[in-house]
Computed example of a mutant assay.
Amino acid sequence: MATYGYARVSTDGQTLDAQCDALLAAGAQRLFQEKVSGAKADRKELARAIRILDQGDLLVVTRLDRLARSTRDLLNVLATIAEKGAGFRSLADPWADTTTPHGRLMLTVLGGLAEFERELIKSRTSEGRLRAAERGVHMGRPGKLSRHQREEARQALVNGGATQADLARRFNVSQATISRLAMTA
């Protein structure tokens, strides 16, 4: 069972020293450090730290905002750590400690609230889409071909005068676009 520390700052002008000192004082045997914005999904050192976690290991950060950029991101990272059978602890947030029953409870409640929020957002989004469709709003990206071009391509397909590949080149679209037209011809 090993204890790993993860330290992150957002800009080159900031220093990792205080975080590293706190993590070492908390018993971290190995540190993973990076200077990258928390808004970036691709945090290579965090991914490396999580990748080496084994059953019973512990990942420690100084504060939750060093680990995740949002509640959803935090829950995803913690789920990945839990799948490895490892624990997590934030030094500045004692309630965020998956090695204690209270910490697991708090994170479970937080996870439940985040799931509830996701369901509300999904419901509101679906309702908004339905109302927009009722008003005749077109969803999705605009079509590549005009109505006239679609008719012309369909006629060429029906009359057998052109292959799908020929039509795709002629109208400067993918062959899949012409193939979808062929299904409606």
Rank of each mutant, 00 (worst) to 15 (best):
Lys40Met: 14
Ala153Lys: 04
Ala182Lys: 07
Glu117Met: 01
Arg180Pro: 02
Ala39Pro: 02
Asp17Val: 11
Thr62Ser: 08
Asp57Gly: 02
Lys122Glu: 03
Ser174Trp: 08
Leu67Asp: 06
Ser146Asp: 02
Ala26Ile: 08
Asp93Asn: 13
Ala162Asp: 03
Gly87Asp: 08
Gly161Asp: 12
Thr177Pro: 00
Val137Ser: 06
Ala185Ile: 12
Lys35Gln: 15
Leu67Thr: 08
Phe171His: 13
Gly111Cys: 07
Val137Trp: 13
Asp12Cys: 10
Glu117Thr: 01
Val77Trp: 04
Lys35Glu: 15
Gly160Asp: 06
Val109Ser: 04
Met139Lys: 15
Leu145Lys: 12
Asp42Asn: 12
Arg118Asn: 05
Arg30Glu: 15
Glu45Arg: 08
Glu127Leu: 08
Arg8Ile: 09
Met183Trp: 11
His148Ser: 14
Leu67Phe: 07
Ala39Gly: 14
Gly136Asp: 10
Ile121Asn: 08
Thr163Gln: 06
Arg8Cys: 06
Arg30Leu: 14
Val109Leu: 13
Leu167Tyr: 04
Ala182Arg: 10
Gly111Ala: 09
Asp17Ser: 11
Leu105Tyr: 13
Val61Pro: 03
Asp65Val: 06
Leu110His: 04
Ala41Asp: 11
Thr108Phe: 10
Thr80Leu: 13
Glu152Phe: 13
Gly160Leu: 05
Tyr6Lys: 10
Ser174Gln: 01
Leu75Ala: 01
Ser70Gln: 11
Ala185Gly: 12
Tyr6Pro: 07
Gln55Trp: 06
Leu16Arg: 08
Glu127Cys: 06
Leu167Glu: 08
Glu127Asp: 14
Met106Ser: 14
Leu58Pro: 02
Leu58Ser: 05
Asp97Lys: 09
Gly112Asn: 01
Thr80Gly: 09
Val60Phe: 01
Thr125Lys: 01
Gln175Ser: 04
Ala2Lys: 13
Lys84Val: 04
Thr80Phe: 09
Ser123Asn: 11
Thr184Ala: 13
Arg170Val: 04
Arg66Trp: 01
Ser126Thr: 13
Gly143Ala: 15
Leu167Asn: 05
Ala18Val: 15
Ala26Cys: 07
Val60Pro: 01
Arg150Asp: 00
Met139Asp: 08
Thr71Val: 13
Leu157Arg: 08
Ala185Lys: 13
Leu110Tyr: 06
Thr71His: 04
Asp17Ala: 14
Arg141Phe: 11
Ala79Pro: 06
Pro94Ala: 14
Thr71Cys: 01
Arg66Pro: 03
Val158Trp: 00
Lys84Met: 00
Val173Leu: 06
Val137Thr: 14
Glu34Arg: 09
Val173Asp: 07
Gly140Thr: 05
Val61Glu: 00
Thr15Asn: 15
Tyr4Glu: 10
Thr62His: 10
Asp73His: 10
Thr184Leu: 15
Ala18Ile: 14
Arg170Ser: 10
Gly136His: 12
Gly103Trp: 06
Phe32Pro: 12
Arg118Asp: 00
Thr98Glu: 05
Ala96Arg: 12
Thr62Pro: 00
Asn159Tyr: 03
Arg180Gly: 04
Phe88Thr: 11
Ala49Gln: 03
Leu167Gly: 11
Ser90His: 07
Thr15Trp: 13
Ala18Glu: 14
Glu151Arg: 12
Ala2Ser: 12
Gly161Phe: 10
Ala39Leu: 15
Thr11Ala: 12
Gly13Gln: 11
Ser174Ile: 00
Ala92Arg: 11
Val109Glu: 04
Leu67Trp: 07
Leu59His: 05
